[in-house]
Design a protein around this nucleic acid. Structure first.
Lengths: 200, 200, 200, 200
DNA sequence: ACATAATCGAGACGGTACGTCCCGTCTTGTG
DNA sequence: CACAAGACGGGACGTACCGTCTCGATTATGT
């Protein structure tokens, strides 16, 4: 009995939390700013999440993982062999999707915040890793495993290591000088595919 | 005329600033905490740096770049052929030195802080990039160029791209799951050297 | 709309202000000490009075004037003549009431503070004069005018001057040596009544 | 041995102390402001007076008492009777001299400061009383005693009480409304001389 | 219909952190 | 040594912000 809670407030608060997290990080985030951004009274926030940790944890849990690229799903057998370089194309498509997802959603801006506060709040980054990073790495690893199966990639390939070197320039685009930078996906893929060593 | 300033205070304040920056980031850093960490009155800090920006900028400027590894300097011709794989060894040594420098000094803990606040304070991250990141990338690029000259590496290698894929797992070790993790330098170098594609 | 202000805080703040004013004067008074004395947060004080001047001005305005002595009111005609020396008795009662009021309330301790800072803050002293001093002088002047009307006092008496000489030892009891001092009301009244000159 | 102290600094410091005392009172006075007003380094002040109390005490001790009025000295017998009202004239001259001295020197501005802080620093006010107030009262009392001796004043006069009522309007001129005010010495003297009561 | 009870926005409230300012102590170089 | 200039640590105060609380208004629900 009594006035029921308005479910739309939940969504507004979560969205406001993600925006505040992207703008200020966990420490800089305050329940007051979340309430203000959501156009909601402070009591309405505290009635649902009693602590900042609980609120942010739930907000991170809603971060959608990158959607599975259509081209990687479906086949994998390559019985017809219509595509001469399916692995290279799949990698390019997957990495481009990751980059686009990173730049479009708040996840790309939230990650460095959580990474910076990993020492003081390791659980938050861990939650982010499971929700966003792990699925993204899985997309790449899937392509790599597919390539191994099809014989295009080395059989002794360490998938995790290869994922590391492929995802690095995507996940941390700020590492290079800003003048260079964008649109290097093709170069990264080719560099890693062929290797930098002189062919024997 | 008057009592001269004590130069030791400058050093103590800069050191305290770096520690505070590593612990709290730029926004979370307060002049009061710096003074307290340095065992110094607040007026002593403000007498030298009137704003937080000026103090942090100067502090970042003192961050020592990683020292040039001895093995990369010296020779490079390899005329006698005593070293069968000089490029691989040089890369391993350089990357290990970078990782060690990252973990030992505060630079490794300061970087994610500055990266997280790059949107609001791009100049600070830019300063850090020039002071720490650029020299570190130069170490790797030097080795790569040396390898190209000696014929061990492809002549058409894009040095910047190769640096990206090599430095990624070192600069951002937290990207992988913590259970995996450490000591993958050999794997990264070998993966990039040989390439992941099936040898033709 | 919103939570309404608690009126009891106003009273507590005003009372604390008067105490602080008596203890430290206007310059020495700080909003922080007022808040502390009132058992109130600083924001609660600033929400009501944005400046120290406004707060102290309002506090002084609440200083109650000395209440009108009962014996001076009421009659004045003296038709029955039952009281052979009504003016002397009335003066004694009035001056005693003033002294008692001065010593009991904070007004007596606040006055020298405001007087000392009259140069820098003349408005505060002026407010005090209107609230406390003027009513007190009026009590005496009333008695004097009544005495003139009844024929007990000189018709050509300058009421203001007579008030001056009568109120002086009451308002500034510290002027005399502390060893002498107290309880001289009778002497003052008789001295002023009879004059110090040899009767003609 | 060594450089001797400059005696002129002592005078400058004392003068600066009195000015600071008049402007800010004892609590508001700081050694720094004294040194600044005196055009002297802080160490020069502390070399001579180690505490603020010692400095202010010495400064008050230098406050000159009001000089004895010429008309009160000299004769006093009045055997020839050339002066029909010597007491009235002497009182007027003495009170005028006191008022002039009060307004001209810093003593008049220092007194309310010390009076306001009498509770916290009774010794300072006591020192001031002995140095300034007591001599001033003595000037009046001398005239009164002379008048008693000459028969012009009542033989049973309480000199202290009469001094109280006479000096009040001079010592505390701010008690009256500022619109009235100045030049009331004649009125005060006549009022006290003749008394306010109807002549019998 | 309508009383009930919980939700909701607004804002008061106490507490805390921080930058500014000021003071007394000290440490220089100069006379 | 005296003297000024000024560095130094410490502390007080006003500002701003946050989490908790209290209010009046609103809104479904159950009788």
């Amino acid at each position: 009995v009594g006035r029921p809670r308005d479910r739309r407030r939940d969504d507004a608060i979560i969205a406001a939390t993600l925006r505040a997290l992207a703008d200020s990080g966990f420490t800089g985030l305050s329940m007051e700013s979340v309430a203000s951004r959501a156009g909601v009274g402070k009591a309405t926030v505290y009635r649902r999440w009693s602590t900042k940790e609980a609120l942010v944890t739930d907000a991170i849990a809603t971060l959608a993982a990158v959607e599975r690229t259509v081209s990687t799903t479906g086949d994998g057998d390559g019985v017809d062999g219509v595509d001469p370089e399916p692995v290279r194309e799949c990698l390019l498509a997957t990495l481009a999707a990751l980059r686009e997802h990173n730049e479009r959603t708040l996840a790309g801006r939230i990650m460095p915040r959580l990474l910076a506060e990993r020492e003081s709040h390791p659980d938050l980054f861990e939650s982010y890793r499971n929700r966003v990073i792990a699925p993204a790495r899985d997309r790449i690893a899937d392509v790599l495993r597919q390539g191994i199966a099809s014989g295009e990639l080395r059989a002794d390939l360490d998938v995790e290591l290869a994922t590391d070197v492929l995802i690095g320039p995507i996940a941390y685009p700020d590492h290079r000088s800003p003048t260079d930078g964008v649109g290097c996906i093709d170069g990264v893929v080719d560099t890693v595919l062929r290797g930098i060593g002189q062919a024997p």
